[in-house]
Design a protein around this nucleic acid. Structure first.
Lengths: 201, 201
DNA sequence: CCGTTCATGTAAAGAGTTACATGATTCG
DNA sequence: CGAATCATGTAACTCTTTACATGAACGG
C-alpha cells in the first residue's frame, strides 16, 4: 500500500501529470520504491476516486489531453496519517540468501557466478543511491528544490538531513551486500584450494 | 516463485507432510522466506499437479488422513535448474527508508518512535538469525542434520559453510539496519538540541 | 470431556509484473 | 515525413495476505 503514499509524497510538492509523476518517480522515490507506469496510472485513478487527489483535465493540441493532478486536503491528511502510523514490517523474503544456503548443490563455477552477479547487482544500486545522495547534497534534485521552496527556513536542514539519512541507509545496505558477495567468493576460493590441494587422499 | 523452491529444498532431504513441512519451514528457511500455511498447502497441491512431488496418502485413526510428500525426479531437476539459473533480482521496495525520507513531516516524538521501532524490528530478526547460526554451528538444526546424513563426507564442510555464510549475511544486514536506526536517533538529538538551544533567533 | 497438537484446506481481496495497445505533439 | 517524446491506459496473470473453516487424534 506504500505506492499510494510515495505518489502523494511527490504530488504534495506541487501538481503533476501522470507522465511527469512517473518520470520524477523513477528518478527519485523510485530508487526506494519502484513502480512501472502501468501501476501508476490506475493507482492515480483510484486515488482520485478516493478523493485524495483531483485532476484538472487539460487539452493539448486538437485531441491530446493531459490530467494534471493535485493533492486534496483529504489526501494531505491521508499522507500525514500514514506517516504518523506505525510501520508494518513485511516478513523477510530474500531469494538471494535463500539460494546461497543451498549453493553446495551447484558447481563452483555457477556458485562463483552467483556471487559475481550479486556484487554487480548491488553495485548498480549503490551507484544509483550515491548519485541520489550527491544530488541531494548539491541541491540539484528538482523535486527536493521544489520542496525546499515551499518549506519554512527553519525546517530546511531537517528536510535535507532526513533525505540524506535515508539514502545513506540504502548505501550502507548495498555495501553490506557487496561485502557479503566478496566473502562468498573468498569462501569458494578456500573450498576449491582445499579440494584441489589436499584432495580426498 | 521462490516458495516452490524453498519447499523443494526441504523436501529433497526426505518426505514430509504439509503440516511437518510447515513447522520445519517456519523454523529454518522461514527465516529467509516466510510463508503461511494457507500458502503452503495450495502450493503443494500445485507442485503435485506439476509432477514435482508425489503424495502418499496415509490414514490416521478412523477418518484422519495425512499426505506424505516426496520429491520426484522431475522435482529434483526443477530445483537444480532453478539453482543453476541466474537470479532475478526484484526492484528495491523499502517502505522504511521511503518513510524516513519524509520524517520532517512528523513530530520529533513520532520520528523517534519510528527509529525505535526500526531498531526493535531488526533486533528481533537478528536474534532469529543468530539463533539459526548457533543451531547450524552446533549441528542442532534437525533439517541440517538430516541433510548431512544424506551428504557425501567431502561435501559436508561446504554444505555447512554455505548455510553459515547465508545467515551471516542476514545478520550483517540486520546489524546495518540497527546501526542506521541509532544514527537516526542521534540525528533527532542533534536537531532537537539545535532547535531547543539556539532557536531561530 | 477438554485442551493441545495434528491436519488440511477455501475464499476473497490486494499488490505487483508483464505484455499489449494506442495515439498526439513536437522538433528537425 | 519520421523519430523522439509526451501521454494514457487495459488485460491477464502471478504472488501474497488475511480471514475463515473444519475436524480428528491424543494425553490427561
Amino acid at each position: 500500500m506504500s505506492l499510494r503514499y510515495a505518489l502523494l509524497a511527490i504530488l504534495r510538492v506541487g501538481p503533476l501529470s501522470g507522465y511527469e509523476l512517473q518520470k520524477q518517480f523513477s528518478q527519485s522515490v523510485g530508487h526506494v520504491w519502484h513502480a512501472p507506469d502501468s501501476q501508476i496510472y490506475p493507482e492515480l485513478r483510484k486515488m482520485e476516486q478516493d478523493g485524495l487527489i483531483e485532476a484538472e483535465e487539460q487539452i493539448r493540441g486538437e485531441r491530446g489531453r493531459r490530467r494534471l493532478y493535485h493533492v486534496t486536503d483529504a489526501g494531505d491528511r491521508a499522507f500525514l496519517d500514514w506517516m504518523n502510523s506505525p510501520m508494518d514490517y513485511q516478513r523477510v523474503r530474500d531469494p538471494a540468501h535463500l539460494r546461497a544456503a543451498y549453493l553446495e548443490t551447484v558447481s563452483p563455477d555457477v556458485a562463483r557466478e552467483f556471487f559475481r552477479a550479486h556484487i554487480e547487482q548491488w553495485e548498480r544500486e549503490l551507484e544509483q543511491w550515491r548519485g541520489e545522495l550527491a544530488r541531494i547534497e548539491s541541491l540539484t534534485n528538482p523535486i527536493l528544490v521544489r520542496r525546499l521552496q515551499v518549506t519554512a527556513d527553519e525546517d530546511r536542514d531537517a528536510t535535507i538531513a532526513f533525505k540524506l539519512l535515508a539514502y545513506e541507509g540504502l548505501v550502507e545496505h548495498a555495501l553490506t551486500e557487496t561485502a557479503w558477495g566478496r566473502r562468498g567468493l573468498e569462501l569458494l576460493d578456500r573450498l576449491s584450494r582445499r579440494d584441489g590441494g589436499a584432495g580426498s587422499g
